Simulated assay, not measured.
Amino acid sequence: MALNDNATLVIGAGNYFTAPTGTALPTDLRAPAAAWENVGHTSIEDILAIASEGGEATVLATLQNKTLRTKYSARSETLAFTIQQFDSASLKLFYGSNMVQNPNGTLGIPTDPTPTVAAFLAIFIDGTNVFAFYAPKAEIYRADDLSISDTESLAGLPLGVKPLQHNTNTWTYAVTPLGVVTP
């Protein structure tokens, strides 16, 4: 692999979007089509984290070769970010898509919450370059407990996005190489 100074990433701006499950990756990542809805303000300090589960290795042996092959269990990943908007749409992502609007205007938190299922897109801008994560189907739900620590910072709702296999795809999410992308 050759050194490529133009392939380094410094995030200057970014946005997170949802759309109906199966919505295609936009042809212009700088201006996603109307189907893609921006989730709102997000943390500038905790931009994105990716955690993995699974992927454990099992060494398979024979009498003749104690380390013949390695088999790996399925791996799933969760993309995490913090939304800093406390409107109905954001609260539904955190508390569950089955949250209800009460007659008095409050939002009822379900005892058996249902994650929001949607297509997910995270777009990061580095000068003239673009880098993105795209999942045609994902579950979006709280990633951690709500904690408001001080009066000097914006409060946030930690969200987790679990990419899921969509239709006949053999992948759960895709990333774009840094630069211009055409799907």
Rank of each mutant, 00 (worst) to 15 (best):
A2G: 08
L3I: 12
L9I: 10
G12F: 06
A13Q: 07
G14H: 09
Y16Q: 07
Y16F: 15
T18E: 08
T18D: 07
T21A: 06
G22Q: 03
G22H: 02
T23S: 01
T23F: 01
A24D: 11
L25W: 01
P26H: 03
P26Q: 03
T27R: 13
D28V: 02
L29Q: 08
L29F: 03
A31V: 08
P32H: 07
W36Q: 06
E37S: 15
E37R: 15
E37V: 15
I44Q: 13
E45C: 07
D46C: 06
D46K: 07
A49S: 13
S52V: 01
S52I: 04
G54F: 03
G55A: 04
E56W: 10
A57E: 10
A57I: 14
V59T: 15
V59G: 11
T62N: 11
T67K: 15
T70N: 06
S76L: 03
E77N: 12
T78S: 02
L79R: 02
L79H: 04
T82P: 09
I83S: 06
S88Y: 15
S88D: 15
A89C: 10
S90H: 02
L91Q: 14
L91W: 04
L93V: 04
Y95G: 02
S97D: 09
N98M: 05
N98G: 03
M99S: 04
N104L: 04
G105E: 04
I109D: 00
P110Y: 00
D112C: 08
P115G: 04
T116W: 06
T116R: 07
V117F: 12
V117L: 11
A118H: 11
A118G: 12
A118E: 10
F120Q: 10
L121Y: 11
F124P: 08
I125S: 10
G127F: 10
G127E: 07
T128Q: 10
F131P: 00
A132R: 06
A132T: 09
Y134C: 07
A135W: 05
E139H: 10
Y141N: 13
A143V: 04
D145W: 13
L146C: 05
S153C: 00
L154C: 06
A155L: 00
P158M: 01
P158T: 04
L159V: 03
V161S: 01
L164H: 05
Q165W: 08
H166F: 14
W171H: 11
T172S: 11
V175P: 11
T182R: 12
T182Y: 08
P183F: 01
